[in-house]
């Protein structure tokens, strides 16, 4: 008896039809495709993308050159030089991140005692010249200015 059922099942391609039913049903369903770049997938407030250096609301740069991020970076992607300014405070003269070395682990952000270096939600960027992959202090501060609003919003959401 079992043999007959098996024979009929295989004769009429029943298991293939079962599969075709599943794929066929998808025809009437709405596609789940995201039409990037017009549509985007959700981005977490903890996302670790392109780096930025932040400033205080009064325009003073936050980074005090403690070099903790340089010490903690597993990929040795950060290099910093510091100098004492005329107002006796210490600030960086060179702050470079090599984005080809960076593994985006987020340790620099975690280590920074003054919330200066952050990893923003920017994940779409490119370089046109080879040396562009090494971001210097000015680039980083510029991204920080651009991204400050989103950064504050992300911080609010992370506290929830």
């Amino acid at each position: 008896m079992n043999k007959i059922i098996k024979f009929i099942k295989s004769l009429f391609f029943l298991e293939i039809l079962k599969g075709l039913k599943i794929t066929g049903q998808k025809l009437s369903k709405e596609p789940i495709t995201i039409q990037y770049p017009e549509e985007k997938t959700p981005l977490s407030s903890r996302f670790r993308g392109l780096h930025a250096l932040r400033k205080y609301p009064n325009g003073e740069e936050r980074c005090i050159g403690c070099k903790l991020c340089e010490a903690v970076c597993p990929a040795l992607a950060i290099s910093i030089d510091t100098e004492e300014r005329s107002d006796k405070t210490r600030r960086t003269t060179k702050y470079e991140i090599d984005l080809f070395k960076c593994i985006y682990c987020g340790f620099c952000e975690e280590a920074c005692p003054v919330d200066a270096i952050v990893e923003t939600g920017i994940f779409e960027y490119h370089f046109e010249r080879r040396k562009d992959s090494v971001m210097n202090k000015l680039d980083l501060l510029k991204i920080g200015d651009m991204y400050e609003k989103e950064e504050l919003k992300d911080r609010e959401r992370n506290k929830l």
Binding site: T41, P42, S44, R46, F47, R48, Y104, G106, E119
Partner: peptide
């Protein structure tokens, strides 16, 4: 998305 929500990547 769960990975990203919790860790950031």
């Amino acid at each position: 998305d769960c990975y990203e929500a919790v860790s950031g990547t």
